[in-house]
């Protein structure tokens, strides 16, 4: 099973309903977003004029670069398939790729807000939500699109899909050949693979050739310099014992945690 989303650019009118519905559904702070619409062109594509939209969100990649360096405390988690009852157990840090449904998720209670995953994502699909604070993540927590996992688990469409006024967003299981999303892939829907990368983005685009050319020529990202992400993760790991101690000392509270963090930084 691999959930994915299709953005049909022939249907999209660039109305931003998806962005605002997501903000409302998930308390995303005004200045941040889990998804975005960027207006492209009008520009010449060969001899033709084109204008389209980069309708972006987390790609829930086949091989996500954002999860590898997460310094969050690993935990054994049992994942289950609500349809088949199939269970899989894996030890994962604070962000991982779900071995059942293929989505990439974050456990905010274990996220320390180090920003490594945010640096690693070439699509800038993650941001640090400063409103989410606890003793181990006093700068905030990484946040991003979950493909509305809590909604689809209840049989509801993702908020962005439900509000899409023209049916330009289609959500489903790419591994199910009968699904509408799989049909779109058959017709040629493709993801925005990062330059030189092999991430396997599962949010895919479909549209006229000139619109796709415009999207891919303007919006294909470079792979992130993973050194920076790695450095962040490493620093965070060094700090972890101190943070853990602080986490246990809840009486210390936020200011206490900050003090421990400051100490760790000095060291």
């Amino acid at each position: 099973m691999q959930y994915g989303m299709i953005i049909d650019l022939d249907r999209c009118v660039g109305c931003h309903a998806c962005v605002i519905a997501c903000k409302a559904e998930w308390d995303v702070p005004t200045e941040f977003a889990r998804n975005w619409v960027r207006h492209l062109g009008p520009a010449k594509i060969g001899e033709e004029m084109a204008m389209s939209y980069y309708v972006g969100l987390c790609n829930h990649c086949a091989d996500p670069v954002c999860v590898t360096d997460c310094p969050g405390e690993p935990l054994e988690v049992t994942f289950s398939n609500p349809k088949t009852g199939e269970k899989k157990t894996a030890t994962v840090p604070a962000t991982w790729k779900d071995p059942i449904d293929g989505t990439v998720q974050i456990d905010k209670s274990r996220c320390i807000g180090c920003g490594a995953c945010i640096e690693a994502c070439p699509y800038h699909a993650r941001y640090l939500n400063p409103a989410l604070i606890d003793a181990i993540g006093s700068d905030g927590k990484a946040d991003k699109c979950t493909y509305c996992k809590p909604r689809f688990e209840q049989g509801l469409p993702p908020a962005c899909v439900q509000t899409c006024i023209t049916g330009a967003r289609i959500f489903g299981d790419l591994d199910d050949p009968a699904s509408e999303v799989a049909q779109y892939v058959k017709k040629g829907a493709v993801g925005l693979e990062a330059k030189g990368g092999n991430l396997g983005p599962n949010s895919r685009y479909f549209g006229k050739k000139k619109d796709m050319d415009l999207l891919f020529s303007t919006s294909t990202p470079e792979l992130a310099g993973l050194e920076k992400a790695g450095r962040r993760a490493l620093m965070a790991k060094i700090m972890q014992p101190a943070m853990k101690a602080a986490g246990e000392l809840t009486v210390l509270g936020l200011v206490g945690a900050a003090a421990v963090k400051a100490l760790a930084d000095k060291e």
Binding site: E25, F32, K108, A131, L132, P150, G253
Partner: peptide
């Protein structure tokens, strides 16, 4: 940016409040 409930949590660091938005559904 945070709804009031979250600010209260950040200040008191008491119960594990809604780090994960619940959604409106």
């Amino acid at each position: 940016s945070a709804p009031l409930a979250k600010i209260a949590y950040a200040e008191s660091t008491l119960a594990p409040a809604a780090l994960e938005a619940k959604g409106t559904f």
